[in-house]
Simulated assay, not measured.
Amino acid sequence: MRHGWSLDRRALLRGGAAAAGALGLGAWPRRASAIGNIAVGDGELTVVSDGHLSLSMNFSFPDVDKAELEEILAAHGLPADANDPDCNVTFLRRGDRLAVFDVGSGPNFMPSAGKLLENLGEAGIDPSEVTDVIFTHAHPDHIWGLVDDFDELVFPDAAYHMGAAEWDFWRAPGTLDAMPEERKTFVVGAQNRMAYIEDRIELFDPGAEILPGVEAVATPGHTPGHTSFMIHGGTEPVFVTGDAITHAAISFARPDWPSGSDQDKERGAATRVALMDRLASERARIVGFHLPHPGIGRVERDGAAYRFAAG
Rank of each mutant, 00 (worst) to 15 (best):
E70A: 06
L73V: 05
L73D: 00
H76V: 00
G77S: 03
G77R: 02
A80Y: 02
A80I: 05
A80L: 00
D81G: 05
A82M: 04
A82N: 03
N83T: 01
D84C: 03
D84Q: 07
D84V: 00
P85N: 06
C87K: 08
C87A: 10
V89L: 15
V89N: 08
T90Y: 03
F91D: 06
R94Y: 08
G95D: 11
G95E: 10
G95H: 09
R97V: 05
R97K: 13
L98C: 12
L98D: 04
L98F: 11
A99S: 14
V100R: 12
F101H: 13
F101G: 13
D102E: 15
V103T: 15
G104V: 13
S105L: 07
G106C: 07
P107R: 06
N108T: 06
M110L: 13
P111H: 12
P111Q: 10
P111M: 01
S112T: 15
S112W: 08
A113I: 03
G114L: 01
K115M: 11
L116D: 05
L117C: 13
L120C: 08
G121N: 02
E122I: 02
I125Q: 13
I125N: 07
I125V: 14
S128F: 02
S128T: 14
E129F: 04
V130L: 09
T131G: 07
T131C: 04
D132Y: 09
I134G: 15
I134P: 15
F135T: 01
F135H: 15
T136G: 15
H137K: 05
H137T: 01
A138M: 12
A138Y: 08
D141Q: 12
D141R: 05
I143Q: 05
W144P: 00
W144V: 01
G145P: 09
G145E: 06
L146F: 03
L146Q: 03
L146P: 06
V147H: 06
V147L: 03
V147Q: 06
D148S: 05
D148N: 11
D148V: 04
